[in-house]
Amino acid sequence: MNLYDIIFYIFAAITVVSGVITVTSKNIIYAAFSLLFTFFGVAGMYVLLGADFISIVQIIVYVGGILILLLFGVMLTNKVTSTDIKSGSVNVLPAVIGVALFAGALISIIIRTKWTETPGEIPLSTAGTLGSVLLNEYVIIFELLAVLLLIALIGAASIARRTKEETN
């Protein structure tokens, strides 16, 4: 067991434990903050896989953007008097059985499969390669994503600003 393996197990433990807290915590604020640790754990895994640019994008977009948006959503849709905002769960027992069976099947398939691994050298920085591939082979997808983000921006603003008089 070398240093790489130890760091992997630490990040995997952070990801899985905080993921469990995210999906089981009754308190919405605790769930949101443990989601923060899950995102950091996943970012650490990207670093271990040699994807430094994706890791930074993960932290900037997920932690700096999506998680803040989710917290805004929590604050806007609850009568906030303290940090003690609760929410219940439904269908816990059937969901636990079904999800456990599904996860067991998935994990046993993954462990039994003989994966052909051809790991190359980890490049020092992936940002240059990603940029040139993005603007050469994937340029149409790049433009479509720009249009999609614009549509999402306009759509989100128009859905959220609609008042009751306008909808009737």
């Binding site: 990801t15 899985v16 993921g19 469990v20 995210t22 999906v23 899950t38 996943v42 769960s89 439904v90 269908n91 816990v92 969901a95 636990v96 079904g98 999800v99 456990a100 599904f102 996860a103 998935l106 994990i107 993954i110």
Partner: peptide, 13 residues
């Protein structure tokens, strides 16, 4: 796959 199952559990419950 553990993370996927946890997400599925959250969506269902």
């Amino acid at each position: 796959s553990i993370l996927f199952s946890l997400g599925l559990y959250a969506i269902v419950t």
